[in-house]
Amino acid sequence: MIAEAQLSQGPAPHADETFRAHHFETAEQQFAAAKLGMWLFLVTEVLFFSGLFVAYAVFRVLHPEVFVNSAALLDTKLGAINTVILLFSSLTMAWAVRCSQLGQQRGLVLCLSLTIAAAVAFLGVKGIEYAHKWHEGHLWASQYGGPQAGETFDRAGSFFSVYFAMTGLHAVHIIAGIAAIGWLLKRSLRGDFSPAYYTPVDVVGLYWHLVDLVWIFLFPLLYLVG
């Protein structure tokens, strides 16, 4: 394998002691800690989103017809485009990790930039969708039907409450991801990362993939099966 051949010639992984904190005995130990810490954080993220999935399941099981009818109001095409965009950003993120492991400086910068671009594009599509929903008055429960709808109660509002809560929280995570990857980009332009030290790229990558994972479930649940 080319990758392994390159690796064996370069410096040993986690050999760079520049960023080792004093309380770790080795940079290797620090890497293990960072990775475990990120995985623990991802566990909290899974459970954080779990509340919304539970709410989705409860409302859907109690009022299946409302969900089927309301989901038809979402634009499946835009949802599918966003899915592809996010999957692509996951690919570039995974590639960025590869570049950092192999010391491919320009590749790393390119992959991180592409990831950020994809994330921004995702938000752009999301913004179009939100604007459309706003215009149509397809809003959450208390605002469903727009301000002029008055006091009439429509269960479709429950679906859109779930929709906005789930996609909104997910969008907040995308924004946080853009910030984190932007930080990686800044550091990679400074030349901080090398095969001997790439921990931040690896752990931010994990976070970004989790954001993708959540969307992998949101897309069919909201847009397709409704």
């Binding site: 409302f59 959450w140 429960a141 208390s142 509002g157 409450s161 809560a165």
Partner: peptide, 22 residues
């Protein structure tokens, strides 16, 4: 997430927990 939804409920009327909103 529970408290976030409660805040959204009070601030925006998202209606997860309010029977009046389903």
């Amino acid at each position: 997430i529970t408290l976030l939804l409660l805040i959204a409920e009070r601030a925006l009327g998202i209606g997860f927990f309010d029977p009046k909103l389903g």
